[in-house]
Amino acid sequence: MSALLSVRDLQKTFGQVVAARDINVDVPVGQTVGIIGANGAGKTTFVNMITGHLKPSGGAIIFEGGAITGLPSRKIMRLGVARSFQVAQLFPTYTVFENLCAAIAIAHSGTSVFSAAVARFVSDRTKGEAETALAHFQIAPYRDALASTLPQGMRKLLDIAMATAGNPRLLLLDEPTSGISLEEKFDLMEVIMAALKARGTTVLFVEHDMEIVRRFADRVLAFYDGTVIADGPPTVALDDPRVAEFITGTLIRAKDGTLKAPTVSHA
């Protein structure tokens, strides 16, 4: 598989603090990558650098063969990279349908504000795509509700549905299940992943719940102290002793006194 996203020697420092160092990752088309790590490990910094929210201190980010390092977020979005946020970023005074129409209309209106000034906001195409998104993300029952009145799960779904408006090839989800109850988390992820798989979107998602990662990720990137300490399929990466020691905290002390990762059943 060809690499959709390549990250080379990525660095980020804030004064004396090193937030990211020597990150090297290739993400092939179609892969779903779970990003794990303790708070402050550098997960969101990594996502923020890819999406242009933060400018890297060094290294390169290549998307579809072209460098996107340090570009403004809106330009990166236009190239086919989208993201959702830990706290859903919506237009609270718009209805769910209007939120989707806004996202879709911008995606269709071209790159300049002048083309946006002549493109019609409400078109049959925009409305049609908004209705499709409502169905795919199962938020149709809330179609005419104001975004400010939505329950947390629906806010997350709408945020992600809006991010997919321009049919991005790469989507980064920052803690899609944060603030969601344990019972609802898996259902929510099922809806999200089903919708994204249908679109063939490559996904990187930041997640703290290891069961979610184990179930939905094809591959895991484990972050610790600003760098990737484990990279591989969930069955391998999540059982890596360093991951167990620094992230999942599941190391157990054997009878001989050494620390070991527990044996996990993946049936």
């Binding site: 809106r74 946020f85 806004a102 019609r120 991010a163």
Partner: peptide, 28 residues
């Protein structure tokens, strides 16, 4: 009635989201 015109409320509501939909708020 245009996309740029209808983005007025969106700008008022949430500039971050507008930027991450791929359009410059400052230029708008």
């Amino acid at each position: 009635g245009s996309v740029a015109g209808q983005m007025a409320g969106a700008i008022r509501d949430n500039e971050i989201r507008v930027e991450y939909l791929g359009i410059s708020v400052t230029r708008l």
